[in-house]
């Protein structure tokens, strides 16, 4: 996993979502593709230490439950969460097979993510490039950004029903602003020399946008994608909590209604796994698209 343990843009960094999207996420330093042997050993040790921490925490939790210090009715217990997961996988959930729930949530999140990112990039670049548009829309965006968008989920559920539509729309709304502000900022920060050079070399405004603005804003846009998938997932889950026929959110909701805390926690574990896998995929994409960038860690590509 990531080598920067304290990354603030981890997908589940949810609570600040309503008001934090207008401070663009700085492009993250790209992890190096190649390291020395010493670094490899260090990484193994690091991973082992992390696993150890998790094992210790889970053991303490379980022991505390066994010793009746912690009440599993309120807080669940690791063995119970595990049993719940196993039963979901082998027997299925009360609302159908587990894979179906995961697929529904995933579909909502991915659709919301893709649409939100596309809209965010297009609007961000358009407003970043065309000053009049930026002036015209700035107040609207400020207002839209200041309302707690998660509340819109309630409206969408009523308006668009219990199907996936309302969740996708909520996810789009959550994803859009982060991507938009980053794309906008990235467009504004394009090196003026590069713009001048492209124009003098004969590029039309459209080609300047495509071949200079877009690639140079990519660093910013990609940085926002890390949090954005987390937002998309939140949109999907919250939408499902508010009312749905299927999905992980509903699974969590119905477990809660049955006072089954192990079920709630098991649902959270699944959501976390999805988020982590998505994060890894986005990092892969980032490394591919930003191949042209110089490695930023010491000793990265120097020894080949």
């Amino acid at each position: 996993m990531s080598d920067t343990p304290l990354r603030s843009d981890a997908p589940m960094a949810a609570p600040a979502m309503a008001d934090s999207a207008d401070t663009p996420t700085r492009p993250a330093d790209r992890p190096p593709s190649r390291r020395g042997r010493r670094n490899a050993r260090r990484r193994v040790l690091m991973a082992a230490a992390r696993v150890a921490i998790v094992v210790v925490l889970l053991t303490v939790w379980q022991l505390a439950v066994n010793a009746k210090v912690v009440d599993p009715f309120f807080w669940g217990e690791p063995s119970g969460v595990w049993d719940e997961l196993v039963s979901w996988v082998t027997v299925g959930t009360p609302q159908g097979s587990l894979s179906e729930q995961i697929l529904v949530t995933l579909q909502e999140a991915v659709l919301g993510f893709v649409i939100g990112v596309i809209l965010g990039v297009v609007f961000g670049i358009a407003l970043g490039r065309v000053r009049v548009l930026a002036e015209l829309f700035a107040p609207f965006l400020k207002v839209a950004n200041s309302i707690p968008r998660i509340v819109l989920g309630a409206i969408f559920t009523v308006a668009f029903g219990f199907g996936i539509q309302s969740k996708v729309i909520l996810a789009v709304v959550l994803v859009f602003f982060g991507v938009f502000f980053n794309a906008f900022q990235g467009t504004r920060e394009v090196d003026r020399n590069l713009l001048a050079n492209a124009r003098l070399l004969g590029a039309s405004p459209w080609r300047v946008t495509r071949e200079v603005v877009l690639p140079s804003a990519f660093t910013w846009i990609l940085a926002s994608l890390h949090i954005s998938f987390g937002f998309a997932l939140i949109g999907a889950i919250v939408g499902e909590l508010l009312g749905a026929n299927k999905g992980l959110g509903l699974l969590i909701r119905s477990s809660q209604n049955n006072f089954n805390m192990n079920g709630v926690l098991a649902g959270m574990v699944l959501v976390a796994i999805i988020a982590l896998v998505a994060e890894a995929l986005i990092t892969l994409l980032e490394n591919r698209l930003l191949r042209w960038r110089p490695p930023q860690y010491h000793g990265a590509a120097a020894v080949e």
Partner: peptide
Amino acid sequence: GVDTSTGFVFQQDAVFPWK
């Protein structure tokens, strides 16, 4: 405005880093 029959070699680096 900019005329493309003019060539300009800039003082600062202006090659496209992603190309």
